[in-house]
């Protein structure tokens, strides 16, 4: 397995801020893996996402130290535009992810390609392909500003994917959507991951994190509190002190343990919980 993201001892403080947002963060992400970042509000998750795509240090002003490398490219020495071919970012508010230059969804999707000077024929082909992937073929001629939040978020994900990045960074990208819209986006992300795209996801839904993550990293007050597989992280006795919610299945398992059932492992996923309950009922 090769590392596609390598963050080394990275610290960052926004200009004029009273505190340092990220402190000596180090981790790496392997190619094709599903990497989740969890933590309380204000723990630096979004800042970290911005650092992965080069918005820090190229867009946000502040002091930084340490390094972020994406596929052996030093982010600080690169440009956001160059990085956009390797790593794409989707964040929370759908309507802030529109370019506001497009009269139609098709133009919106093509915006990034136009900036990179891609020829019109290629553009049309890629727009058609991404639209099919995101299930937005029927929206191509619509004005993006007249769509629902869920639809716009799919357009935003599409405009990111059209750059064909190897890594997708998702910063709570379903937080403002209704459950249905949220699942639609999520299904697409899971499929992309199965097709080989590395996913770095920030999310508050711990059941979901436990279900898909290969690795989970817990951030607290800008520091890495824990890093490991969902099983390791969520069953850690200290987990609740890090300011995160733990999956209900873990709580269920603890309850069963307290009630005198001896369990081999605490469950973090639905299938594990089902197995555990079966075992307990026997």
């Amino acid at each position: 397995m090769t590392e596609v993201i390598r963050v080394d001892d990275f610290s960052f403080r926004y200009r004029d801020a009273d505190r340092t947002t990220l402190k000596r963060v180090s981790f790496s992400v392997e190619q094709g893996s599903f990497f989740c970042i969890v933590g309380a509000n204000g723990s630096g998750k979004s800042t970290l996402c911005n650092a992965l795509v080069g918005l820090i240090p190229h867009y946000f002003v502040g002091k930084s130290r340490g390094s972020v490398r994406i596929e052996d490219r030093d982010v600080a020495a690169s440009t956001i535009a160059d990085l956009s071919r390797q790593v794409g970012l989707v964040f929370q508010n759908p309507f802030n992810q529109l370019s506001y230059t497009a009269g139609t969804v098709a133009e919106e999707l093509a915006f990034g390609l136009g900036n990179h000077g891609v020829s019109r024929e290629t553009m049309h082909a890629k727009v058609a392909r991404v639209a099919a992937l995101m299930h937005i073929e029927d929206l191509l001629d619509k004005n993006p500003l007249e769509l629902s939040g869920g639809q716009v978020q799919r357009v935003a994900l599409g405009s990111t994917l059209i750059m064909e990045p190897d890594i997708l960074v998702l910063d709570e990208c379903t937080a403002q959507l209704d459950p249905l819209g949220s699942e639609e986006i999520f299904d697409i992300v899971k499929r992309l991951n199965q097709e080989g795209i590395t996913v770095v996801m920030v999310d508050h839904d711990m059941e979901r994190v436990a279900r898909c993550a290969d690795q989970v990293m817990v951030l607290g007050a800008g520091r890495v509190r824990a890093l490991g597989t969902p099983e390791e992280v969520f069953t850690d006795p200290d987990a609740e002190k890090w300011g995160i919610d733990i999956p209900d299945y873990v709580k269920l398992g603890r309850g069963l343990e307290d009630a005198g059932f001896g369990l081999s492992d605490l469950p973090v996923r639905e299938d594990q919980a089902v197995g555990m309950i079966r075992e307990a009922l026997r």
Binding site: Y59, S84, G88, Q97, A110, L113, N115, V118
Partner: peptide, 18 residues
């Protein structure tokens, strides 16, 4: 942020349109 990550204002490339 959106504009920047979509390669807006990139230098040395002649922009094209859909």
């Amino acid at each position: 942020m959106t504009l920047e990550t979509r390669g807006f204002g990139i230098r040395g490339v002649r922009q094209t349109s859909y």
